[in-house]
Design a protein around this nucleic acid. Structure first.
Lengths: 328, 328
DNA sequence: TTGAAAGCGCTAACAA
DNA sequence: TTGTTAGCGCTTTCAA
């Protein structure tokens, strides 16, 4: 019918006719049925978002941002929390392809099978990776400068006289943590300092054990770089339990800023990253891909976003005052 | 075709034929096309979730839980963060109905127009409300005992000798906060105490102002009940800035537990509620509704979940209360 | 127990 | 500029 033309505002419709159709649509309360379009091979006005853990504030903020942007562009957002399960992640991606979603934003939990992923993309589901890269397929990606951020933190400690700086954390096969460890290593080696890694500290008990194992040694670290939020908190509690004063006895910088970082005692120096920026850039890239779907061989874009040191008090080199830095 | 019968395993197919079809499906890599079913009037294997703010940890945990359960039942989850906008919320609900979702889990941000909502339900989208009730439509609901939780907190303070107890917070037209205020009021009046409300404290500045306005008075409150997480944190900071000691000079109990509540100094006494339970119950209710779709007039279910007092140190009456060390 | 026919609502291709 | 025809992949009805 002409109706179809009106709806998709095709140029070749007499204004008069168009008006009449529009009126009729109003009166009859007509609503377009997307399913029919799908059947004809169109894509659904929906994007997918897969993250390792939606209950993690960082990803929750990403999801919030993406959903809002997507909505503003007319898309609904299908969110999957993969629970760090790569197989699940890929299955859900395949499912989304089958359901003809317009695109997928993916924080991968590992290294999904490249062949299967390629097939997903070939089925018409453009993918943009963020926070963690997706190797082997030429996807766009938005990443954080984890390595540089870690370097900056460790440099900061070194610049203020620390030589025995430990790196504590866990989950070191996850990309962001691995990068942060690399940053730690490179800063240390640049200054001829011996790295001291403890990468299995994933609980309060673990942190307490680590503190115990280390505090009485002659060469006990004078500063600690924690590779992530969780570790930072566990260490803080462990130090508090063992009455090790932060920062006077040991300095601490943690990767990942968090809302209460400026509130707790002592206010924690962190390396912060903007979940909102990350999500926004990723979404824009995806929208680009979707809109220029047919575009031949646009080369994949890689965007790097900074991680910035937020100096508060736990690193011991902030002039003590009542004023504390605000969260980033 | 017979194929259709096999897929939906209709009884009337010879086992032999069935086997052959199944083999063919395997070989050809056949994948069912959901869109066609939609066109014939079936529902999509998808549920919707609308929350006021997905970046709020509480709702993030709800979303995480619901997505997981939905996935395990074969549903995808469409998540919308309404930004506390009732109009947006209702628009998205309508959109979901049009897209033939199987059901909707809704944390409403106000009181959406009952007529429009009824139409949504009539279009075949069952709705279950949680965290906040949906009045006027006979929907199922899962709610927290906000009022009882608040009462318990205030009773706790009263039982330990406090008489001048202030209630501080904001957003008192939101259902949960309103209920908590009611709980505060009823506990106070039960003991013949005069309520002291300050319900516009929504920032650190506001909290500091409030502290200033109150600390030098002869009848300054000896205890505070904070109606939500944000207020709790702001008050804590304000007290710290003004060197008002918690709990020795003023006791504090905050509604909403949070991850760092036991970690900060002093560990905060809170009233906690389980986002996981809330989400789980809501999902089950929705699945019920979906599965017995045709069921005539099943009366709406209301489930109430407890909010429980978690006594730590900020209320000053913890049995194991140790000295809270000066911030290192 | 299986097959054939029709149609869900839309759009692409063509005809008028 | 508008209308006609056909078909997307499935299910439902009826016939074989």
């Amino acid at each position: 019918m002409t109706v179809s033309r009106v709806i998709n505002d095709h140029p070749a419709v007499k204004p008069n006719t168009k008006k009449k159709v529009l009126t009729a649509i109003q009166q009859l309360g007509y609503e377009r049925n997307e399913a029919a379009g799908l059947l004809k091979g169109q894509r659904a006005m929906m994007i997918g978002l897969i993250v390792p853990d939606l209950s993690d504030v960082f990803f929750a903020i990403c999801a919030n941002t993406i959903e809002k942007l997507a909505r503003e562009s007319g898309y609904l957002t299908l969110i999957v929390s993969s629970g760090h399960d790569v197989e699940l992640e890929i299955q859900q991606a395949e499912l989304m392809a089958r359901r003809k979603l317009s695109g997928l934003l993916l924080v991968t939990s590992g290294a999904p099978d490249a062949e299967r992923m390629k097939r997903v993309i070939a089925e018409g589901l453009p993918i943009v990776a963020f926070d963690r890269p997706l190797d082997g397929l030429g996807t766009d990606a938005v990443l954080i400068e984890n390595r540089l951020g870690a370097e900056e933190a460790v440099e900061h400690l070194i610049a203020h006289g620390h030589k025995r700086i430990a790196c504590v954390g866990f989950d070191s096969d996850a990309y962001p943590v691995a990068e942060r460890v690399k940053g730690y290593r490179s800063a240390m080696s640049l200054h001829g300092l011996r790295p001291n890694l403890s990468m299995k500290v994933d609980s309060l008990e673990g942190a307490t054990k680590w503190v115990d194992s280390v505090r009485l040694k002659a060469d006990a670290p004078t500063a600690v770089f924690a590779t992530n939020y969780r570790t930072t908190v566990h260490l803080l509690r462990a130090f508090s339990e063992r009455k090790v004063k932060v920062p006077s006895e040991v300095a601490l910088i943690g990767f990942d800023d968090f809302e209460l970082a400026p509130v707790i005692a002592p206010p924690v120096t962190t390396v912060g990253q903007s979940a909102v920026d990350l999500a926004r850039r990723a979404f824009r890239l995806l929208l680009d891909r979707i809109e220029r779907a047919g575009d031949t061989e646009r080369s994949p874009e890689k965007i790097l976003l900074p991680a910035t040191l937020i100096v508060r008090e736990s690193c011991g080199v902030h002039p003590r005052s009542k004023k504390t830095a605000e969260p980033a």
